[in-house]
Amino acid sequence: MAFVAPGAIFMGLLIAYPLGYGLYISFFNTNLINRWDFIGLANYEAAVTSGAFLRSIGITAIYTGLVVLGTHVVGLGLALLLNRQGRAFSVFRVLLILPWLFPEVVVALLWSWILNPVYGILNHILMSLNIVSQPLVWLEESRLALMGVVGASVWTSFPLVMVLLLAGLQSIPAELYEAASIDGAGRITSFIHITLPGLAPVLVVTLILQTVWSFKHFTIVWLMTAGGPVNATNVVSISIYREAFQYFNFGQSAAYATIVFILCIIFAGFYWRFVRDGK
């Protein structure tokens, strides 16, 4: 107990209190200064009946789905390939982690610069390779913009998934594969019967973390598109931010945040159950 107390107190003060405060103001119509009208659940009612908020939840779900899918396809694929000995592989391993080290600010600005329709390098490459004839207006057309922010997010997020999954792979005892290979099992069979089950606990952790992080993600999308064009990338964190810091409806903003919190907890609940049952 004495070991846990310092951390618990620290977090109690600096996490539990602000969390509680967020919940508290979600029941008010407030600018946090001189207007404090208690309005019960009206903010929540406004949220679930507002097309804009529901749309931004929808966009967030698509963004999250694509980022989780992207990071896991890339991360798992690379982890499987990297799971072997050899100098070349350890070099790959180190280099492929690099994007994880980039600050989000840098990731967002760098990708905006790469995707710049006039001065950017990507259009130049695509046009020199004759893949496109006209410069693509990345971040400008709804679908391309979503692809752009998803691409940047996957680029910087896949290494962590890759490293965690690689660690998971390495914790699967080699004897299992040997036994399977004696039984005449092929690569695919042993992947399904040994690798996937062995990886499951790690996979669940990476899935849940990536899902929750993406669902709340703000910086990269905000700096790249600020939610545009025409709200095509208006993820829910941006709605929360705008409601609070541009429209000064702090209560409404808090209600949005609380709804996101609840959605994430529901998701985590499934995960918790899954892990319990798995054991």
């Binding site: 618990a8 209190y17 967020g22 709340k216 609070a244 808090a254 945040a257 996101v260 919190f261």
Partner: peptide, 24 residues
């Protein structure tokens, strides 16, 4: 509960913690 709390901290959009942090 403590373990659960650790996980829950990952679930709340940090944007909204800005204001309470500022006032603390």
């Amino acid at each position: 509960a403590f373990l659960l709390f650790l996980l829950m901290t990952q679930m709340f959009p940090s944007i909204l913690l800005l204001i309470p942090y500022y006032s603390i």
